[in-house]
Design a binder for these strands. Structure first.
Lengths: 369, 369
DNA sequence: CTTGTTGCCGAAACCGGTTTCGGAATGGAT
DNA sequence: ATCCATTCCGAAACCGGTTTCGGCAACAAG
């Protein structure tokens, strides 16, 4: 008897090829075919080859959810979007998901996406997805300084891979871009062009990478023989508006910076607004190098010089790392840190004026209107 | 004997509550519990209540992939991102996915995301996901004028819901925003403010909504008693740069427009650049009303007046519609069209000059430097 | 008091795979 | 020739659900 439904949509009538079809065609049993395809060592190589060939020929593809009922694995990568989170990562999202998904499909895996409204809700959703076996593991974007997601997943004994390193590496696998190296390199580039006062506009302190980038900035100063000045550092700037205000404040200093390093492109966009308001030209009066490689940067005048992160590639890497992790590789063997690519597009050059001259210029323009 | 694996990650040892546990606790059989929970009519209401209560109490949650092996349904919504596609929709993606996901989880469904590199690849991925039963149905963003995805899904007899209407509505369910009404209203608002020459900068012709919005623009002119002038219409503008060029070209006309209607905010951002280059002030010398409601619009000076689309809500609606569709509701009963919300933020006002005066002004400024 | 109905539930098969267990060949050593 | 260890595969149970089928009560109709 049918349950209480109006008019359920019929599935296509063409019956699937099952493992029984394959075994029958070969004169073997289901168990032999199954073990042959899953790499069990007690199957002769010749038999395995026969099985694989026949499976290929007949177009047999095991149903992952039929396997899952016994194995507990659904061949799916879990990913959670936090919408309440600062919106900075959204422009990357499509590329990032595309990367994960393409790595997943290479191995016959899929990507399961869920949305959370808060960090706490994220934990609840992780628990729910694990309880329902909807994902075999998780990719965690934006590693925090202290990250509850890690504790939760450790407790549930569910594998995960982080986008970004973390302090306590126990059980942790990760992929990351060496933002600290980029920041250091940015400072050195500006210093090599003649900049003596170099500011740093950093992101949110809750993120682990923010601290790394700050270290990179400091290391750059040291390598260039410049002294660290806390007045030249602004924290917690994520949006263009944040960046604009930071730039205004820095340019209002008695000894304003002529060079700017931004931890993120989005904030650096605000520098252009500040420069226009003050009658300064980016790439001449002031120089800037940022980080991320967002598309908007390329359409500025001059285009924003930046350390570009291949976010799609990051997704791919994270996807393959997670699959390996689920399959049993030790987390210590699943850690990758790659370098960002510097795009020299003209927003950083030899300073037209020293910090003092710039300060005088700004005083004059401020007095004029 | 174990297959060839290094060190597979162990699943949590706490065994799940299965249907057998529930049936045993009640002194019933598995089949009774199953039918009780799935709404079969041959189960007494009193029994059903007992079952539901006990299932709740014991925390029983059926495994969707265990159900799927018999039912063929995995309770999952499929969604495909086309990365090669014009990047305009990316800023919305997070909100959109969040909407779908939240609607899905209300019903215990999940969201399966895949990425495609081209329209053809999209079809291949749809076929793959359907063959592997990874999704019970699909949400199709950005309905095209003639859309191969529809044909493929019809052939596979897999349900789908579109974000955007289409010409041939056979089997089609959809959710859409009445962009044509917004465009018409935009024209009428500008006309009511005194604009006589009103331009229209439209999006890509491959999208169905582009044609609808064009009709809306024409209807707006007619309602305002203005005549249609093909010189005032620019097609295929998706990016800020497209919009900038379109605005420049329109303002170079002998009778330039004083009012602009943009089919998308992103293109309208370029108008601000064009205006600055020409020494015009948006909201005074020229007026603009656009469509979408992207965040960048709010940070322009003056902020962009626009018809805002609640993209998260759209995702939610599409999610619930698709679930209903999979459960058997007829597509004709699953069609919703809602209105966009007008945000009056100052970029549209009474024109300071007529089209002729504007043309003279532009000639003067062009001659000066 | 039979004879249908009807309502309600149990027994068992089934879905498409995986995994355990045992045993039939095979080969080498004694 | 015998014995033992391997190699390799079949038989059957199992995973957690769903669905078919049939049968037992209870009740109404004849």
């Amino acid at each position: 008897m049918q349950p209480n439904m109006e008019n359920p949509v019929r599935q296509p009538t063409a019956r699937r090829v099952t493992i029984a079809d394959v075994s029958e065609a070969l004169g073997l049993t289901k168990s032999t075919v199954s073990r042959a395809m899953n790499g069990y060592p007690d199957i002769a190589e010749s038999t395995r080859a026969r099985v694989m060939r026949m499976a290929e020929k007949m177009g047999y593809r095991p149903l992952s959810h039929a396997q899952a009922i016994r194995t507990g694995r659904v061949r799916s990568i879990g990913f959670i979007i936090e919408t309440a989170e600062h919106d900075a990562h959204r422009p990357f999202l499509a590329e990032f998901l595309a990367g994960i998904s393409s790595a997943a499909s290479l191995e016959g895996w899929t990507l399961t996406v869920a949305a959370a409204s808060s960090p706490l809700n994220t934990l609840q959703i992780i628990e729910g997805l694990c309880a329902d076996r909807k994902a075999d593991g998780f990719i965690l974007p934006r590693t925090l300084r202290t990250d509850d997601r890690i504790a939760t997943l450790r407790r549930l004994q569910v594998p995960f891979v982080m986008f970004g390193r973390t302090g306590d590496p126990t059980d942790c696998a990760w992929y990351d871009i060496a933002g600290e190296d980029a920041m250091q390199s940015a400072v050195q580039k500006l210093a090599a062009s003649g900049h003596r006062r170099i500011a740093f506009v950093n992101g949110g302190k809750q993120y682990n990478y923010t601290h790394l980038r700050h270290e990179g900035y400091a290391a750059g100063l040291q390598a260039a023989g410049l002294t660290f000045d806390a007045a030249l550092v602004r924290e917690n700037c994520m949006s263009p508006e944040d960046g604009r205000q930071a730039a205004r404040a820095l340019l209002a200093l008695d000894q304003p910076p002529t060079g700017f390093v931004f931890a993120m492109d989005r904030a650096a966009l605000g520098l252009y607004d500040a420069a226009r308001d003050l009658g300064l030209q980016v790439g001449r009066d002031i120089s800037v190098i940022a980080y991320d490689g967002i598309i908007e940067g390329a359409t500025m005048t001059p285009p924003l010089s930046t350390f570009s992160v291949n976010i799609r590639r990051a997704g791919e890497r994270l996807g393959t790392l997670l699959i390996r992790r689920v399959r049993g590789s030790a987390p210590e063997t699943l850690r990758r840190v790659e370098q960002a690519t510097f795009l020299d597009r003209g927003s950083a050059a030899t300073p037209a004026r020293s910090s003092e001259q710039l300060a005088n210029l700004l005083r004059d323009t401020a007095a004029k209107p």
